[in-house]
């Protein structure tokens, strides 16, 4: 039922990838994306694939999880695939019918793009698989903190994200309770037209909002009672520290990137 909703897709573990500094992990993910987009041929992409497979093997994330992350983007892959197939021109014409024609270049672009999107999603989901949402917001705060110089509220944004993540399970539980209570009063949530069903949500949404506001007020009060006054001068329990392994990971990534640039220069297929 409603309890089956999982938010974030963190897959707990103790692998090397899990233990990397989250800031470095975000940096590596960005480098990986740059890598994929700078590869001009299949050999470059192949190098990207080797990088991805190594990372996945080290992280010990089951292959099933990787496939699961691709599932929601299949329609996008198919859509772009069709566009590329029919509208990219060049090379020899393989097939033509009415105004549509499939060229060898179109076929190549379709496969190339599809592979690139799949790698892109796999790589970025590895980040969320191996980093808990709280750690991720921590890292985002630290990465954005230089922007404080131009009055960008990095700490506040990270705090908002943390609180939101913290309260998702609470609100899910609350929704469950309210739904049971209204069902006990004869609320009918399962049958009727779309409009009727939307209307049937009112007895659930209003108490949910009221309780969310009440919780927000309580939380704000509790935070103030503990002298919370924003990010200035706050120290942290979990210090983020980039160690040797982190820099090794960066070095390896940079080498792969260099490899892709070299391949682009030598064999631009």
């Amino acid at each position: 039922m409603i309890k089956d909703i999982t938010i974030g897709q963190y897959f707990p573990g103790k692998s090397l990838v899990h233990r990397l500094d989250p800031r470095i992990k975000i940096l590596l993910t960005v480098l990986y994306i740059v890598m994929l987009f700078s590869a001009s041929g299949f050999l470059g992409l192949g190098l990207g694939m080797i990088y991805l497979i190594i990372a996945f093997l080290i992280s010990k994330i089951p292959i099933k999880m990787m496939l699961k992350s691709i599932k929601p983007i299949i329609p996008i892959i198919i859509f772009t695939g069709i566009l590329n197939l029919f509208f990219v021109e060049g090379g020899t014409v393989l097939f033509s019918w009415w105004k549509l024609q499939i060229t060898s270049e179109g076929l190549r672009t379709m496969v190339f793009m599809a592979v690139r999107i799949i790698f892109l999603i796999c790589g970025t989901s590895l980040l969320t698989y191996t980093t808990s949402p709280i750690t991720l917001t921590d890292a985002i705060e630290r990465i954005l903190s230089p922007l404080k110089a131009i009055k960008f509220p990095a700490h506040e944004i990270a705090m908002m994200m943390t609180i939101a993540l913290r309260f998702i399970p609470t609100l899910v539980e609350e929704t469950d309770k309210i739904m049971s209570a209204q069902k006990a009063r004869g609320a009918d949530l399962e049958t009727g037209s779309v409009l009727q069903r939307a209307k049937a949500l009112i007895p659930i949404l209003i108490p949910l909002f009221v309780s969310a506001f009440r919780r927000a007020e309580d939380l704000a009060l509790a935070m103030e009672c503990r002298c919370y006054h924003g990010g200035d001068g706050r120290t942290r329990m979990r210090q983020l520290k980039a160690g040797v392994i982190d820099w090794v990971a960066v070095a390896v990534t940079v080498i792969f990137m260099a490899g892709i640039f070299v391949l682009n220069g030598l064999l631009p297929i």
Binding site: S180, A181, Q182, A184, R185, A187, D188, V210
Partner: peptide, 30 residues
């Protein structure tokens, strides 16, 4: 379900209507 009325813990958190009258009539109307 109408034969067995169930009042949950902290039932006041399930109130939602504009007036008390409307809220009490929610069950009977259903």
């Amino acid at each position: 379900r109408f034969k067995v009325g169930l009042v949950f813990q902290y039932p006041e958190y399930q109130l939602f209507e504009e007036t008390v009258y409307k809220d009490i009539s929610f069950g009977p109307k259903n």
